[in-house]
Nucleic acid binder design. Structure first.
Lengths: 226, 226
DNA sequence: ATTTAACATATGTGATACCATTTGTGAACT
DNA sequence: AGTTCACAAATGGTATCACATATGTTAAAT
């Protein structure tokens, strides 16, 4: 298993750095669904004792990113078609909600920042750098929702991202086949016009086209090939 | 501080029992907003070493039920009017979504079970047993959303409950002043009729009237008295 | 009397040790 | 060859200890 390192912020506890590393790895899909994890294995892989690893893993289990089996062993959950549909539906509901409640707080400065992220995404797409694409896409959405000063839904949204993450890698390869219209451009237009309805529409389309269709295809293909 | 004990399920780890106890205490509002917590304090209060307590507390911090301060100390977050409005709005969105997606899986058996819970709530209201009322209300909603076999939003919903919990105690006393129409009866009627629109409406009204109005009043009163 | 400095106490963090349980392996048996 | 049993290794769970940092307190200095 390959858990990418992350820039080490000093003055951070080991537990938090393990948490950040695992979270990142899961979110970009580095760890395959069904992978079994062990405290000691992870600890050794990161050169730490099991103690901080346990705390990080427990946190991720509470975010439903890691599944605790009845044997007290841990694994990255498998994806099923039913669960996938529910997760995408929840993602749409949560992100449309978050976008709607962010609009009143949007500034031209933030719109400019979002445009820059979107341009970087175009480049990542040309380079076919899928990890980068995933990260930037999440950054785009997170920044939008975070302009709401009392924002409370990003954690819930990220939990959904975490649950879709391991499955992401299989899906993202297909994105180019499906993602014809750039919905981020539509989101930006809606933001500039302060148009709630258009914003909600664009957000929903972005999510649906970005992963829903291709994800469903991958899952149904897997079913037929088995 | 008073952290109620919970029925001890054997074959459960200490970490999980601490987690369950703290979670329950927070959710019914036993612990006041702003309370400072310490690992060793909690450990001593529960007769355990700090290790399992740390893991439980970390999980709750990832669910935004416990706040980790920059000093590495922990506290139950204070409530503000802005955060409260956001939490209620998120609760409405999530629970309306969950209810909608549960309806197709509803059976007469479950409707009967829900009716029983609702009747127990009527009794708790007569007895003015507010803790029991809170627990039963949560059980009612959780059971409804859980009939969806691929359900993935209950954890997100419970995270919101956790964040509203500490503030709950101040609010729930007022509920009688505001909660005139029994929306649970409306929910049951909508379920029996398999009427999506009515179900979503009743769910939203239930949440709004159950806590939103009285909560906002408490918060604005606090602001003026300070 | 107020502020500052020094010291004692309390707290969070992480490594280690020990135990119970589970998993893995290999030999004996059918 | 397949199954079963016994033993070894691995793993999770918790307590304890050591260390660094933060907090609280007391005494000295202004």
């Amino acid at each position: 298993m390959n858990i990418p390192e992350l820039p080490v912020d000093h003055d951070i506890t080991d537990q938090e750095s393990v948490y950040a590393r695992l979270r990142h790895a899961i979110m970009v899909g580095t760890i395959e669904p069904g992978t079994n994890l062990t405290m000691r294995g992870l600890a050794e892989a990161m050169g730490l004792s099991p103690t901080p690893v346990r705390e990080a893993v427990r946190r991720l289990s509470s975010e439903n990113a890691i599944e605790i089996l009845p044997n007290r062993r841990m694994a990255i959950p498998e994806m099923t078609l039913g669960r996938f549909e529910e997760l995408v539906a929840l993602r749409v509901t949560l992100e449309v909600h978050a976008a709607e409640r962010s609009l009143p707080y949007i500034s031209d400065y933030v719109i400019e920042k979002l445009k820059e992220i979107d341009e970087a995404m175009d480049e990542a797409l040309r380079e076919e750098n899928l990890d980068k694409l995933t990260i930037l896409n999440q950054r785009f959405h997170r920044m939008l929702y975070s302009v709401n000063p009392n924002q409370v839904c990003v954690p819930a949204i990220e939990s959904v991202w975490l649950q879709l993450g391991p499955f992401q890698r299989q899906v993202v390869k297909r994105v180019k086949e499906f993602y014809k219209i750039d919905r981020h451009k539509e989101i930006l237009t809606a933001l500039r016009a302060r148009d709630v309805a258009a914003l909600m529409n664009a957000t929903e389309s972005d999510i649906r086209e970005g992963s829903s269709r291709s994800g469903r295809l991958v899952l149904t293909e897997n079913l037929t090939t088995r």
